[in-house]
Write a protein that binds this DNA or RNA. Structure first.
Length: 432
RNA sequence: GCCCCCAUCGUCUAGCGGCCUAGGACACCGGCCUUUCACGCCGGCAGCACGGGUUCGAAUCCCGUUGGGGGUGCCA
């Protein structure tokens, strides 16, 4: 066990789009480092020149920045430390701890004994050396493998806590062996985090599952919500309060309380949690948040920030992911398409009379929520309809749908002219 | 096959020997509120995989069984 100020590293391999599991690992490293006032290093494991691209590296930076995770010092690139790894392999070769095998160098693992280490999440883990093969430490192209870079760097950088996914648990004894062969008498504290799994309880995979963080961002998941949700995958706050700022999670978080069992990624819960974060936004913040999604619409190009701010109170509590927003407000900015099913249902009511009465009354009524509300209520009463029924034909006529934001607030924003035009269009559609 | 890990409501979790007739959240089902939907509020359904120990006492400790999962690359 290493003592002194904790020093952690998040060490992603830039071999593809940032992954949910990668993000969770980054987060847990960061949470613990910040919790105990330690150092948080970022190490890019780009030893595989074929897979590690500059694009992937910048995607990692982007992801970390989006999630709000910061790091101490400059990022460390393994690609620039190849000499150190090469020297380590040479040393093992000289000492007879490694040997050549068809152009590659393999580390000779003892035939007996066990290699063990302590894991904060799992307790003591032991591997019989007999079960560990003589693994490759230098490829035939001369490059060092992941195990070497890992052992050399963690030792050289003085890493005290290694926090990573459980899928790496089996590689740990190899790294421990190499570390000892480098002359180290101690090992860092390990914490192997539970895997994030899908509905089938299998490790999230690029092929089967939607694992790209970008895809959640593009759907309109707020980074604060994503970080909060990810923190809950393998850990729970002692007081049971799940939705809370990252700063509070930093205070409460401890690796010792991390669960060992795999955690299923649940989009429903993420969505619910995101809804809470969305609802906590003020009008201006909400408008700014949905703006990119609105802009992407055919009608969204000239929608200004003020209009969106005005619309915010109407749809905020109905928005769970930001990409939901444009559809709900489209009718305010362009001619709505009438939903056939909703139209049929609404016209089963005495729609003709309601629309005729509204058409007439709305031409005169003061254009504000209260007056419109009172007016339609009165129309309904005359026809023996509760307001809930009476508003339906008007809603479909004006918004195209049977459900949507509060009607009178919507009408107020839409304006008298557009409202009357749509009421009349609906009346003629009814064959009135 | 071999090695390793795991096991509390459908899901995420609280629980770290007595506070548990197991708490919260999501989902689901009722109800209230109400201009639709939503939000909010109230209520409900639902779990310690199984079998042995240890102990005065076990969801909590130990062993086994079963069931899941991960790894087994000149990927990381």
């Amino acid at each position: 066990m290493l003592r002194g100020r904790p020093r952690l590293r998040f060490a992603p391999a830039p071999t593809g789009l940032p992954h949910l599991g990668t993000a969770r690992t980054a987060l847990y490293n960061w949470l613990y480092a910040r919790h105990c006032g330690g150092e948080m290093l970022l190490r890019i494991e780009d030893t595989n020149a074929d897979l590690a691209t500059a694009d992937h590296v910048s995607e990692i930076f982007e992801m970390l920045d989006w999630l709000g995770l910061d790091f101490d010092g400059e990022p460390i690139y393994q690609s620039r430390r190849r000499d150190m790894y090469a020297a380590a392999v040479e040393r093992w070769l000289d000492e007879g701890r490694a040997y050549l095998d068809e152009g590659a160098v393999r580390f000779s693992v003892p035939d007996d004994g066990v290699t063990a280490f302590d894991d904060v999440v799992r307790g003591r883990v032991e591997f019989p050396n007999a079960a560990i093969e003589d693994f490759v430490v230098r490829r035939s192209d001369g490059s060092a493998t992941f195990f070497v870079a890992n052992a050399v760097d963690d030792l050289d950088l003085g890493i005290t806590h290694v926090v990573r996914g459980e899928d790496l648990l089996n590689t740990t004894p190899k790294v421990v062996l190499l570390r000892a062969a480098l002359g180290s008498v101690d090992v860092p504290t390990f914490a192997h985090l539970p895997l994030i799994v899908n509905k089938q309880r299998r490790k999230l995979s690029k092929r089967r599952d939607d694992v790209s963080l970008t895809s959640y961002r593009d759907r309109g998941v707020l980074p604060t919500a994503m970080a909060n949700y990810l923190a809950l995958l393998g850990w729970g706050p002692p007081d049971g309060i799940e939705v809370r700022p990252l700063a509070e999670i930093v205070e409460l978080f401890d690796l010792a309380n991390v669960n060992a069992a795999p955690a299923m990624f649940d989009m429903d819960k993420l969505t619910a949690l995101n809804g809470e974060y969305v609802r906590a936004l003020d009008d201006v913040g909400f408008a700014a948040a949905i703006e990119p999604w609105v802009r992407a619409q055919s009608w969204g190009a000239d929608v200004d920030h003020e209009s969106l701010t005005a619309v915010a109170p109407l749809i905020r509590e109905r928005t769970r992911v930001l990409s939901d927003a444009p559809d709900r407000i489209a009718f305010l900015f362009c001619e709505p398409e009438i939903d056939p099913d909703d139209w049929r249902k609404a016209t089963a009511l005495p729609a003709a009379q309601v629309l005729a009465a509204a058409d007439a009354a709305f031409a005169e009524v003061p254009w504000n929520v209260d007056a419109l509300h009172a007016q339609l209520r009165e129309i309904g009463e005359t026809l023996g309809l509760k307001l809930g029924k009476a508003q339906a034909p008007v809603r479909v006529a004006v918004t195209g749908r049977a459900v949507g934001p509060p009607l009178f607030e919507s009408l107020e924003l839409l304006g008298r002219d557009a409202t009357l035009a749509r009421l009349r269009a609906a009346r003629s559609r009814l064959g009135d």
